[in-house]
Design a protein around this nucleic acid. Structure first.
Lengths: 143, 143
DNA sequence: TCAAAATAGTTGTTATACGAATTATTCGTG
DNA sequence: CACGAATAATTCGTATAACAACTATTTTGA
């Protein structure tokens, strides 16, 4: 667009984000992971941080609480996570991996790294720094 | 993550894409546009290219045909677009703006530009070129 | 020419996205 | 202490996202 140099950024951003998600989802399916990418994000965070409540978890992965509730519902149905009532604050649940959930993260972690790296082929660490800086700047502009 | 320099790119990408969409959606609502951002994308393309069929339109905005069908359904219900049967190929519909749809695009265009530019505050044309290059590279890696 | 393949669009299912409203509980302040 | 405000989680409604299956046409290739 001649009169508007930035006009396509939001389209490119959205398109590429969906490409990445779609590719990962397809590979997850081909490899028989039996979880979605968003479910993976939750499992991965729980692997590093045990005993988060849903609010904290939602903030970590930048999703709202209704969305997180449903992801946790699905993960609990798959017996990969469990909810534990916080006796000090009975409004909260603490979410934790089950042994099966922990085993799943350990098993999938190297494969997920491979899937993620595919997108970055031919790009450098320097590119990554630029990319990160710009994405963060956009995000902060809209806070 | 120490062992994996690129590990957060997909998270940042997805988070920022959602920030942008969410911000635009909020402003659309505040300004009483009464359409979604995705519906806007369709209207905007139809403004430049009359008489596309749904397949062509889907490719332009990088969505699949079921998703586009549903967006067009909503736009037709709002009387902003109409479907016209192609007599040469009766599998196709041509989609066009109604007069109300065209008027809406003309009215909203400058406001949408303002919304879009908010995200880019403090960033340069040079940043945009980098950003575009990297997004396109990722997208092409996953084709 | 005519049956198989390809194509445009729709419908169904599952999951995510987001705002609004609701419930249960806890906090803050008078 | 009490009561209204704030908070954590859930539920609801609508829209998008992806994929599979389906219908109706058109194209193809033997």
């Amino acid at each position: 667009m001649a009169e508007e140099p930035y006009s396509m950024y939001s389209f490119l951003l959205d398109r590429t984000a969906r490409s990445v998600k779609q590719y990962a989802q397809r590979r997850f399916k081909e490899l028989g992971f039996n979880i979605t990418l968003d479910q993976w994000l939750v499992l991965r965070r729980l692997f590093d941080h045990q005993d988060l409540n849903q609010k904290e978890l939602a903030e970590l992965i930048f999703k709202d609480t209704p969305t997180l509730t449903r992801i946790i519902d699905l993960l609990c149905k798959k017996r990969l996570t469990k909810r534990k009532l916080d006796l000090d604050d009975r409004r909260c649940f603490h979410v934790a991996l089950t042994p099966a959930g922990r085993a799943k993260v350990e098993k999938l972690m190297p494969q997920v790294r491979g899937i993620r790296l595919k997108a970055w082929e031919g790009l450098s660490v320097r590119d990554f720094r630029q990319f990160k800086r710009i994405l963060n700047a956009i995000h902060l502009n809209l806070k």
